[in-house]
Write a protein that binds this DNA or RNA. Sequence first.
DNA 1: CATGAATGAGGCTTCATTCAT
DNA 2: GATGAATGAAGCCTCATTCAT
Lengths: 215, 215, 215, 215
Amino acid sequence: MARRKKEPRSVHRGNIASAAEKLFSEKGTEATSMDDIAKAAGYSKATLYVYFQNKEEIISVLAMESMQKLYDCISDALEIEERTRERYYLICQGLVQYQEEFPYYFKVVLGSINMDFDREQCPPADKETFLIGEAINEKIARFLQEGIESGELREGIAIKPTIFAFWGMLSGLIQLADNKEKYITQEMQMSKQQFLQAGFETLYKSMVKETVTKG
Amino acid sequence: MARRKKEPRSVHRGNIASAAEKLFSEKGTEATSMDDIAKAAGYSKATLYVYFQNKEEIISVLAMESMQKLYDCISDALEIEERTRERYYLICQGLVQYQEEFPYYFKVVLGSINMDFDREQCPPADKETFLIGEAINEKIARFLQEGIESGELREGIAIKPTIFAFWGMLSGLIQLADNKEKYITQEMQMSKQQFLQAGFETLYKSMVKETVTKG
Amino acid sequence: MARRKKEPRSVHRGNIASAAEKLFSEKGTEATSMDDIAKAAGYSKATLYVYFQNKEEIISVLAMESMQKLYDCISDALEIEERTRERYYLICQGLVQYQEEFPYYFKVVLGSINMDFDREQCPPADKETFLIGEAINEKIARFLQEGIESGELREGIAIKPTIFAFWGMLSGLIQLADNKEKYITQEMQMSKQQFLQAGFETLYKSMVKETVTKG
Amino acid sequence: MARRKKEPRSVHRGNIASAAEKLFSEKGTEATSMDDIAKAAGYSKATLYVYFQNKEEIISVLAMESMQKLYDCISDALEIEERTRERYYLICQGLVQYQEEFPYYFKVVLGSINMDFDREQCPPADKETFLIGEAINEKIARFLQEGIESGELREGIAIKPTIFAFWGMLSGLIQLADNKEKYITQEMQMSKQQFLQAGFETLYKSMVKETVTKG
DNA sequence: CATGAATGAGGCTTCATTCAT
DNA sequence: GATGAATGAAGCCTCATTCAT
């Protein structure tokens, strides 16, 4: 009722967005109604429209924020670590955590990275999402380049296609690991974590400078 | 109006299902209304309910048919070809074609393979979907085993986890290639096909018996 | 499929009507669909319309048949028995049996006896129902008169109002006994039958020639 | 359109409920659509769902309110009057008025008094309806007891069965009087009121201490 | 005669969104 | 600025009924 006085607009947007994110993760965007969001956020339904143009904008903003988090996570990993291999696993781990925290947006983001926006008629937040996506790609591009320069990664790899292929494969792997966690643990006698680790390794090896392994 | 002449039930189901599949691919199941389907299929809305119990059944049946096609495609590939490497690419190619034809169900199927069905209360078609999924997994398991036996694939690979990891990665890759086709062609100077080929190779290498590559 | 050849129209009407009656009793007319009836009767839905104009006609006919049965039951009772008191209980018993067999029509009939039909636009069967209702009333009127003549019933009772009052009260009693059978047996330690018997007696006493009971 | 000014929620519920009651009385609940109710109440169909969860809740609430009115009417009668005979007629009169005002709910209430509710899964209002029903029964039980104690009613009468039998008979009588009012006035030369009065007397006599009437 | 096939009309319910206060 | 109130539009589904064969 007596809302904290004069909170800046951004706080309310934050409250609403975070309530929405939770619901979207649980039920998907379509099954989540504005009513649900309002209730969860503790606002009146009409108030949502004071802070967001419409439902779509909430989704867009959330996608954007989510992308931002992904960017931060990757950016941090590359800042903290210098060794290529460790960097790679940090990134993978970041993705996993991200997927666990935002299962819904994991899909969305993966689907919208490098979207070819009709720069005309899409929510303003979407443009930003696109930009952050590009920034992420650049970060990873640099990571690969540095890996090549340091001699750890094969020279032959084409940066852009590799980034893309990895996005696709990693996200596919992570999502599947999440969907079938039960199946994996029961039928394969390995934890989700182990399963993923094995997958990440497989992928990493394909980038690594091939060394003589046998005789 | 123009009463179709005594077509067997299956024809109508087919008409409806294929109209639905198209719409689902374009807009997703939730955004597709029964009205849309009816219009697209050229029937009255009420007629849909003569051939399907409800919307869910349409979805289920489509998922099942789709899974069946996937099975056929993989099964055929293994029948036609004997060489491991060629088999692998046939399977990949099958998946790509499948994704192009049924983009919507590609997602669904991948999501439902090895579903842990409450074998009680799910549309009858779903159980079948599950069974076909299992059959697909077995086909692939055999493929891997034969590959190992023939000496082409590494002995160390664990069958089940490998199958799973490949499902995840391949589907992720294929979906991404589809979503971003434009981006890929424009920014990477390569066709979607080439992009995929490169990805498939990466993955294949990780299964192959490592041979001396240098020195 | 191969329906018995050339059954007369009435047989089919009977089959349909009796299937309908069963369903109506179980679920009421509104909750019973033509589909249900067709299935239960073993005909195609369209065939129902060969034998009946529409759903309403089925209901009407059933009401009429039902009224006829009631008439027969009362008529028989008066034929078989000559003693007033015994006649009364036979009638009551007949009503009870009738209610148990046709719970749905018990309500309908009671509601439609002496209906003031717009003799214009009501299903033909309804007129007949009305006529049978009148006939029943006459039977009962004669019963009362004979009771008075034989000295068993009070002279003061007005025939028509008494008939009516009895219809109302008896049917109310019987219906309630049926609705609350469980409650009656559990909370009153008496069977439905006993409960009804007591009620019937109460009513009978009020018609009987008052005799000196005390002093 | 014409936004009603800040009427409290209960007013709207009242408006809707009373429009519904009218329609239910005229056509029954099944034949009355939410659209009908909305139109009659002067709201949009969607608005009904702001004030009631669904159609069932409207029905339940109406049944409950109705039962409450019945309770009040009986309760008042017993408060105002002390003499047994007068009390009885007041109760009867209350029932008649009640039936005239809520013909539909008269049926429902009579049908649901002493319902054996699955106390689990029935609209909340239904439980209350049950409770009020019990309260009514208690009121009447006390009335009978006091009548017996004051020497006006026969000692032999069993309280519970008598209450029940009276419910059944009175309601049957009242309903019939209402259904056939025209017939009664035309064919019997008596008003509905007179007809009922006669019936009530008949019933009353059966409870009264039998006194020497003749000789 | 019997029916498979088709459907218009209508029912209940949900929801994003608007607007007056 | 915040919201209670209201609703148009839409969605899923059912059903009595018609009609060509």
